[in-house]
């Protein structure tokens, strides 16, 4: 597992991505502490200011410091994204792994459930969930977690299926190994990279969804700052602060890009990139075999 990460980090894009993610993680943990102003403090004298030495990113329509709100919003946005990924992992990866080993009935039921999850429209489902369970970030994120569960389910299941049909698993079974042994000693190592790739890209995806939802005002109670919420406020005051949405948008885009770049690097590290493209060689060989068209 560690060598996969090490191989992935050899790529420059992965290095940049990890750098960005470290900064974001830092902001999420310490952001509220290092914020120069109270993110909730209103100031009716300095409404809708541009960037100044005092307010680096200016102030919003209630005179709150945008930079401080951005830092404070990091915690909520990142935690929300992680919440939904954890829900997705538990509801997706776990049944995906078990579907290979717990018999046909379990396999059939989980497959049907995942199929029905896929058909749910993202935003509508999240809105319906918050309408049903009350408007709160946790409710919204559970909804998002359910929606991304099929991705985890399919990836885990596919990886586990491949391994479970391998000869080394059969060899272990011929030694009298139990299913638990096979999963622990053989399957887990092969499934982990696939889950890691999906986790990285799904964190990115759910960050976008969190931002979209909070942008729409779902899952968040107004004074609380989030990246999506900031974007919404800034878009509302575009005339006064035309540059306003740029920074929150860049933060969202940068984080999502970093997560996707990391996912790509992990994927490259797990699939053998050194092998020559077979189809190309086959095409060349075909030239030596007479053919029609």
């Amino acid at each position: 597992m560690i060598d996969v990460l090490r191989a992935a980090l050899r790529l420059p894009s992965a290095k940049i991505a990890v750098g960005i993610l470290i900064v974001i993680a830092f902001l999420a943990i310490f952001g509220p502490l290092v914020a120069p102003f109270d993110p909730y403090a209103q100031n009716s004298k300095d409404l809708l200011q541009g960037p100044t030495l005092e307010h680096w990113l200016g102030t919003d329509d209630l005179g709150r410091d945008v930079f401080s709100r951005l830092l404070a919003g990091s915690t909520v946005s990142v935690l929300a994204a992680m919440q939904s990924v954890v829900v997705g992992l538990v509801l997706g990866a776990l049944p995906g792994l078990l579907s290979v080993y717990l018999g046909r009935t379990f396999e059939w039921i989980t497959l049907r459930i995942m199929d029905s999850f896929i058909t749910l429209p993202f935003l509508v489902f999240a809105i319906a969930m918050t309408a049903l369970l009350g408007n709160g970030l946790t409710q919204a994120m559970v909804a998002v977690g359910i929606l991304i569960a099929p991705a985890f389910y399919r990836v885990t299941r596919a990886a586990a299926l491949t391994v479970s049909h391998s000869q080394y698993v059969e060899a272990a079974q011929l030694f009298g190994a139990t299913t638990a042994w096979v999963v622990r000693k053989h399957v887990w190592k092969k499934v982990f990279p696939a889950i890691a790739v999906t986790t990285a890209s799904m964190t990115g995806a759910s960050l976008v969804i969190v931002s979209s939802l909070t942008f729409l005002g779902i899952g968040i109670v107004p004074p609380e700052p989030t990246w999506g919420g900031l974007l919404a406020t800034d878009l509302g005051n575009l005339y006064q602060r035309p540059f306003g949405p740029v920074v929150p948008a860049l933060v969202i885009i940068g984080t999502v890009w970093a997560l996707n770049a990391l996912a790509d690097a992990l994927k490259d590290a797990t699939t053998d990139a050194g092998a020559p493209p077979v189809s190309k060689q086959k095409r060349r060989e075909l030239q030596a075999v007479p053919h029609g068209a």
Binding site: S166, Q167, Y168, E170, A171, Q173, L174, F175, G176, T178, K185, H186, K189, K190
Partner: peptide
Amino acid sequence: LRSFRRSGRLQYVFQDPLQSLDPDV
């Protein structure tokens, strides 16, 4: 069957060791 297999009295050697040995072990 598992208990018979665990006795180890009957052992199987596969054709291709590249497939029958776990590459990470």
